[in-house]
Design a binder for these strands. Structure first.
Lengths: 349, 349
DNA sequence: GTTGATTTTGCATGCGCATTCAATTTTTTC
DNA sequence: GAAAAAATTGAATGCGCATGCAAAATCAAC
């Protein structure tokens, strides 16, 4: 790490970085040699490689990644498509994902798909930038067709989203397992009038959680007191939904919120808007296990998504290229675990 | 948006995208013409441009951004250096920032600087990828020298961070203003024994908030009952700090937490660990105004950072290139506003 | 209808590195 | 020690687009 010498004549000028050719000339080797010195596995004598790297360090030479991309037609950039950073689950996921990618030399280019913005323009950047793979974390917004178009010709993986009419690889939590675990837990607690609350109704995530939950509830002989499907996954949507549950079905004694941020809003509303006790009067469970769920004040029972494993699997698929275009799409289902806390039982912490 | 024809002969093959030269040949014009058709302000007849764009759309031609970068030596990529995605303030900021950049055709390459990872390797990517500018959101970790090295030769802007020994542009909230506003507010409420709680002690942000707060507290004739400087900005650090405040100075009747996530942890600990009433026994104020601060349960009085304006200013600086290397660094101080809520007063909501 | 000014177009070249191919050197083998 | 095999090197070319320059075409003015 050579620092710019203060007071050097070109102080303040935008110095153009040194190129491989220039470096080569100075050392007295060919440009190819320099290139090889920085290409793992290239055919070059160990001493020469070492010598070149030495000089390179001295001259502060760094291979130009752009030029490399052009000639290798490989960018080492992964496009990450996101739409919701409000739900803390996503930032946490993105953070882990981008770190894991960095570990193996891949950078993350963020594509923030806003509701208002025009998707096509955003996504066309995805294509023009020639990203090596696309990882879609956005639960919503994009239609299968749009997605297919955007990822055409490159590896693509959806996280926590399944699209029936479109062939794309996918890594997801076993939503049905989670929903059943919650139903079983409610049943074991002696609850009988349970409600289900979702955010967006048309997502595959919601469909899976809802269907599995409702089915299991029926199997166990419990009553589905009511079912709310709002328009978004947010704290305030959770509050509204909780109120609606009480309005629709006052006898409800347990609520399964389709994710934690909803559940947390729900708990607050139940407690401070109607003086309801959680879990005595109503047990509450969520899904995800975001950090807030573990805060003592909420102490939310929730089904924990195996985030670390999801990241691991995704990164592995990217690395192996097993999600490359042309290959048959892979669908990985990972199982999570129910984390029982104080929002459903009194015994815990 | 032309979709791949199902059943076409090359089904499943990685189709190489069409190039400008190929398109040109098909239309019967030169490659330059195609290039110009997609270059705003290039010298080309309007009809030709239209015609080419038409054909391009039909043939699903998209200019290859990588090649463009190489010849223009401009990437349209902005490096965003981040280290903490746990504090919700940052994801929110990143989201807005990346959207604003997208609006003007700039993409965001994420550099996630983890504590454990080796910085140099991460940051060397920053240089190799030739990003047009670097925006540093990381409050911590990087030393001024490292930062200088990483951003050498390109535009750079720090957000909410000032480094004395190094010349870099910076956009920050007026921390002193905020701290004084909180002190004034406490004073107006009749509080006299106030405490200050920070996360990382060595950040410029903390220094500014602390010094201004302490100074104003003295000016107003209040007592600084205690001062805690922890090791991180997190919910649990906030809880610990609150307990420590009570331990050190039981007479404390108001606490200023250097950011919201600390304050929220503090409120929870005060309430459920020692049965303290907020605001009756202790008034609590934070800094940032993250979404959680507005949740009815916390209803946290806080100094709101002008996030939108910060984003606006940063994007403008990037766009105008006023933070380009060689130019004198610009330091922008933006003022925020105190948002008074229930954690300090009973009159509100 | 001309000449000069202006716009439009194509050709050729370069951005910086990766890679193929042939030339050269080194190593191995008998 | 010579021939064959293997490893190493450099020259040359291409990745796909942007752009300077000169040729061609269009327009303006008389």
């Amino acid at each position: 790490m050579t620092l710019r010498k203060a007071g050097s004549p070109d102080e303040g000028t935008k110095r153009k970085p040194i190129t491989a050719r220039e470096l080569a000339r100075m050392i007295g080797v060919s440009q190819s040699a320099v290139s090889r010195a920085f290409t793992p596995g290239a055919s070059i004598a160990p001493d020469l490689r070492e010598k070149i790297r030495q000089h390179a360090a001295e001259m502060d030479y760094h291979p130009n990644a752009i030029a490399s991309m052009l000639s290798k037609s490989r960018t080492n950039i992964i496009g990450i498509v996101v739409s919701d950073m409000q739900n803390p689950f996503y930032p946490a996921l993105i953070e882990k994902l981008s770190r894991a990618l960095q570990q193996i030399g891949l950078q993350s280019l963020l594509f923030n798909i806003a509701k208002g913005s025009n998707l096509e323009e955003q996504l066309s950047a995805l294509r023009r930038y020639n990203v090596d793979a696309v990882i879609v974390i956005s639960a919503t917004i994009l239609s299968g067709q749009t997605l297919l178009w955007a990822t055409e010709g490159r590896a693509a993986i959806l996280i926590n989203r399944i699209i029936e009419d479109v062939d794309l690889s996918c890594v997801a939590c076993d939503n049905a397992q989670g929903a059943r675990a919650v139903a079983d837990h409610f049943h074991a607690l002696g609850r009988r009038h349970v409600a289900y609350v979702a955010g967006l109704s048309h997502t595959s995530t919601n469909r899976e959680r809802r269907n599995a939950f409702i089915t299991r509830v029926a199997e166990l002989g419990m009553f589905l007191s009511t079912q709310i499907e709002g328009s978004e996954y947010s704290y305030h949507a959770g509050r509204r939904a909780a109120m609606k549950v009480l309005e629709n079905a006052p006898k409800t004694d347990a609520i399964f919120f389709a994710n934690d941020i909803l559940a947390i809003g729900g708990i607050d509303a139940l407690k401070d808007q109607v003086g309801c006790r959680v879990p005595e009067d109503i047990a509450v469970a969520g899904f995800d296990d975001i950090a807030i769920a573990g805060w003592p004040h909420y102490d939310l029972t929730t089904f924990r998504q195996p985030v670390d494993e999801m990241v691991r699997v995704v990164v592995q698929m990217v690395e192996e290229g097993s999600c490359a275009p042309g290959k048959p799409p892979i669908v990985k289902r990972l199982s999570g675990e129910l984390v029982v806390r104080g929002s459903t039982t009194l015994m815990g912490t």
